[in-house]
Simulated scan of single mutants.
Amino acid sequence: MPEPPGRFQFARHVMTNQIAIGLGLVILGLLGLDWYLADGTGTLFLVRKGAELIEWMAFWR
Rank of each mutant, 00 (worst) to 15 (best):
M1G: 12
E3W: 08
P4G: 05
P5G: 00
Q9F: 05
F10E: 10
F10H: 15
R12A: 14
H13V: 15
V14G: 01
M15K: 09
M15W: 10
T16F: 01
N17T: 12
Q18F: 06
Q18W: 09
I19P: 02
G24L: 06
G24S: 11
L25D: 05
L25C: 14
V26I: 15
V26A: 13
V26Y: 08
I27R: 08
I27P: 00
L28V: 08
L28W: 07
G29E: 04
L30D: 01
L30I: 05
L31E: 03
G32P: 01
G32M: 07
L33V: 01
D34M: 00
D34C: 02
D34W: 03
D34K: 00
W35R: 13
W35P: 00
L37N: 07
A38K: 08
A38Q: 09
D39Y: 11
G40W: 00
T41Y: 10
T41N: 08
G42T: 06
T43C: 04
T43L: 05
T43M: 05
T43S: 04
T43R: 00
L44S: 10
L46E: 04
L46D: 02
V47P: 01
R48V: 14
K49T: 05
K49N: 10
L53P: 01
E55Q: 09
E55G: 01
E55V: 05
M57L: 15
M57D: 10
A58H: 06
F59R: 13
F59I: 07
W60C: 03
W60F: 15
R61L: 13
R61N: 13
